[in-house]
Design a protein around this nucleic acid. Structure first.
Lengths: 392, 392
DNA sequence: CCAACTAAGTTCAGTGATTAAACTTAGTAG
DNA sequence: CTACTAAGTTTAATCACTGAACTTAGTTGG
C-alpha cells in the first residue's frame, strides 16, 4: 500500500509521492481522468503515468472505466476510483451511542449500523462491534477512523469529559483487532475537515466553530487539518469573553466563558440538547429570547475577531446545531465582528453546509492520513451513515 | 545552487532533499559534523553522504575543517559552514532609518551600515544603499531579506501604515538591482523566528507577541513561521479585549483595543517611544502607574488565553520593548491567563531572550527560504548589526 | 615495532524510477 | 483510402542511491 511517508529522501519516496499525485487526480476527477491527463497535470511522462496507473490498478485503488469520446485521436480509457474493494471503517462514538459506517473508496457507504449503550456497557459493546466488522469485512478493510468528543493526538484519547475517558490508547486497542491503521479524530476537527472538503479547491486557513451544547473550534489549512500538534487545540469553550454584569457563571465555575454565552443552551434555553433534530432546533429558535441570542452572537464575535486577526483566515464557518440558528444570529455575529482596522477586509462568516454528514470528516481524515488524498465534494457528500438503526 | 524548489516530483527532488538534510546537519553542528556523521544521521550510505558533501563544498556552502580526534580508527574530517563566500543581505527598514547587514553563512556579520532618512528621501536612499551593496559584494550575494513594519506576502508590501506604503512590489524592485532572490518579512514575524531559533530544538507552535508602540503577534511551528498565507496575519492590536468603563479610546477610533491597553504607551505613559533604549525603558517601568500595567497585563492575558486555547502552543513569548517590563507585568499576565479547564496545563509564558538581534530573524527567514536550513542558536546569536552608524 | 582491529572515506558495479524517443493502437477528416 | 491526431506502450539512457570491496589512517596489544 502507499502509506504516506512524507519526506523525499530516498527514491522510493519519489514513487510514493507520484503515486499519491496520480491517485489524487483520479479522486478529484473520478470517471473523467485518463493516463494522458495525469501525465499532463503532473508534468510526468506518459510512460511514467502509465506505470503509476498500472500500480494503482494493481493495488485496487483505481479502476479502468469506459472509453472516452475521441478528441481527434485514439479514445482515452477513463479512470475512476475503485469502489469495489477497499473499505474505510468509520466509527462515530457518542456518549450513548455509536454509528459505524463502512465507506468505499468512492465515498459511498457499503454498510452502516448504529448501536446504543450505557456508560457501563460502552466499552464491551464497542469491542464487539469492531470485532464483528473484522469477521464480515476484514480482508477488504484499508483503515479505520474513530471520531469522538474529546482531545486526542490521533492514537490516544487524552481526555474526554463526555465519555469519561482519560489517556485511553484506543487506536492501539482497535488496531489489534482490525489489523489496519486506526486514526482517532476529535469530532469538531472532523466536522471542520468535512466542511472544508465541500469546497471545490479549499485554500488558506479556514476557522470552523462548532456551536452546540459545547463550543469548540478547529482550523484547516488548504482543506486539511492545520499541521502541527493538535492534542488539546480548539478547546475554546472556556475562554472568558463576557465581562461585567452580563457575564454568567459557567458550568466550569468561571464567569463569562464563551460557552456560557454562546452555547445553544445559553441562547435557546435549557430545552436544548444535542439530541434534537433540525426541526426541533428551529422551533426553539423561533421562541428564543432575542437578547440571549444577541449576547451569544456578541460573545462569539469577540472570539472570531481575535482569532481572525491572528490567522487571517479565508473564511469563518459556524457549524454544529448552531448552523440552524437562522439569519438573525448570523447577522449579529457578522456585525459584531467587523474589524475597523485599516485595509483589513471583513472576514466572511457563514453557516456550515448541512450536506456534510456525520461520518464524512473522519472518513476524509483517514483517507488523507493513509492515502494522502482527498475526495471531491460530490464523493464526500456521498459519505453518509443513513443509519437504519439496529441496536445490538 | 540548491534553490529550495519545493515541487516534489522528479528524481532531482531526492537530491535536493538530501542536500538540504546534509546541509542542515552541518549547520546545526558546524565544525563537529563529518561525512560519516551525516551518513549515520540521515540513514544514507557513506558513499551518498560523501557525494552530497562534495557537492556542498563545490557550491561553497560547506568547508572542510580540522581532522577530528580518532574514535578508534581513521580520524574524521570535520565539516563546517563555509563562511568565506556567500553573503545574505538583510535590510531592516524603519520609518526614519534602515540598518543593512551582510551576514556570512555562519551568521557572522561581514559588514553593516545604518542610514537615516526622511519620509521624502527614503525611497531614493534605500535604492542607493542597495545599489552600493551590488558594486561591493554583488558576486558573493546569495539572497536578501527585507524586514519592515507592515503586512506582506513576501513579495509585495501590502500595507504599511508606519512607512506610508501600500501595494509596493519591493521584492521585485530590489531583485532587479541585486539579481538574487529577495524576501520581504514582517518585523514581528522576524522577531518570532529569531526567538524560536534560539531554542535548541524548537517544536510545536509558539506564540510570539510583540509589545511596543504597537501590538502584533506571530506564530511559529517547529521554529519556522507557521505555514499558509500570512499576508495580514498577526495584526491583533485592534481587537477589543477591554470592556466597560476601563476601555480607553484607541487611536484607531475603537474603544478597548488590545493596543489601547497593552501598548507600552498605554502602560508606561506618553514618554514611551519605540526609540528608547533598555535603560530608559527600565526607568519608565520603575515610575509607571501600577494600575495601568496591571490593566495592560489583563488585556494581554485575555488575548493569550483565547489564542492558546485554539492553538495549544508549547510556549508564549512576549517580545519587543515589553520584554523589559520586569517581573510584575509578567506575573500578572501569567496569573490572568490561568485557564481553569479540565486537564489543561497552564501555558508557559516568558519574556523574549534579549540576545536575539535586530537582523537575525529576517536573516534566518531568508536562509530557510533559500537553503531550507536553520542556524543553531550560537550562529543565530552571532547575527547582529552592531551598527557603527554612518549616515549617508 | 608489528599484527590485528577499527573507523572514515572512496570507488564502482547494480538497482529503481524517470525520461526521451520510437512505436503501436485507434480514432477523425478530407 | 490516406493523412493526421491523440492515447498508450516499449525500450534504451540517465540520475541518484545502495552495497560491497577497497584505501587510508588511526588505536591497541603482544
Amino acid at each position: 500500500m502507499l502509506t504516506t511517508d512524507e519526506g523525499l529522501d530516498t527514491q522510493g519516496a519519489v514513487r510514493r509521492a507520484n503515486l499519491r499525485r496520480a491517485l489524487q487526480l483520479v479522486f478529484l476527477n473520478s470517471g473523467a481522468q485518463t493516463r494522458a491527463g495525469i501525465a499532463r497535470a503532473t508534468g510526468l511522462t506518459a510512460a511514467t503515468a502509465s506505470s503509476l496507473v498500472a500500480e494503482l490498478i494493481e493495488s485496487r485503488l483505481v479502476a479502468e472505466g469506459e472509453q472516452a469520446a475521441s478528441t481527434g485521436g485514439k479514445r482515452a480509457t477513463t479512470l475512476s476510483v475503485d469502489a469495489g474493494h477497499h473499505l474505510i471503517l468509520v466509527l462515530v462514538i457518542q456518549p450513548l451511542r455509536a454509528n459505524l459506517v463502512l465507506v468505499a473508496l468512492d465515498g459511498t457507504p457499503v454498510a452502516s449500523r448504529r448501536v446504543d449503550y450505557t456508560e457501563a456497557t460502552r466499552d464491551k459493546i464497542l469491542d464487539e462491534v469492531v470485532t464483528s466488522v473484522v469477521t464480515e469485512f476484514g480482508d477488504r478493510l484499508l483503515a479505520a477512523g474513530v471520531q469522538l468528543p474529546g482531545t486526542t493526538d490521533g492514537r490516544v484519547v487524552l481526555e474526554s469529559v463526555q465519555l469519561g475517558w482519560e489517556s485511553v490508547p484506543l487506536a492501539e486497542r482497535f488496531e489489534h483487532v482490525l489489523s489496519v491503521p486506526v486514526l482517532l479524530v476529535n469530532d469538531v476537527d472532523a466536522e471542520a475537515v468535512a466542511e472544508a472538503g465541500l469546497e471545490e479547491a479549499p485554500s488558506g486557513y479556514r476557522l470552523f466553530i462548532h456551536l452546540g451544547g459545547g463550543v469548540g473550534a478547529a482550523v484547516t489549512l488548504d482543506g486539511e487539518l492545520a499541521p502541527g500538534p493538535r492534542d488539546r487545540a480548539g478547546e475554546i469553550g472556556h475562554v472568558q469573553v463576557v465581562f461585567g454584569d452580563s457575564a454568567r457563571v459557567c458550568r466550569c465555575g468561571q464567569r463569562g466563558c464563551l460557552e456560557s454565552a454562546a452555547s445553544l443552551e445559553a441562547m435557546l434555553g435549557d430545552q436544548f440538547s444535542d439530541a434534537l433534530d433540525v426541526s426541533e432546533i428551529c422551533a426553539l429558535v423561533a421562541s428564543a429570547n432575542g437578547g440571549d441570542v444577541d449576547e451569544g452572537a456578541r460573545a462569539l464575535a469577540r472570539a472570531i475577531k481575535l482569532i481572525s486577526a491572528l490567522l487571517d483566515p479565508t473564511e469563518v464557518v459556524i457549524g454544529g446545531p448552531a448552523a440552524h440558528l437562522g439569519a438573525r444570529f448570523l447577522d449579529r455575529v457578522r456585525q459584531e465582528s467587523e474589524y475597523p482596522a485599516r485595509g483589513t477586509a471583513q472576514v466572511p462568516i457563514r453557516y456550515a453546509d448541512p450536506r456534510a454528514s456525520l461520518a464524512a470528516g473522519a472518513a476524509q481524515a483517514v483517507l488523507t492520513s493513509v492515502l494522502g488524498v482527498r475526495w471531491n465534494p460530490q464523493q464526500l457528500r456521498a459519505v453518509s451513515p443513513s443509519v437504519s438503526a439496529s441496536p445490538d
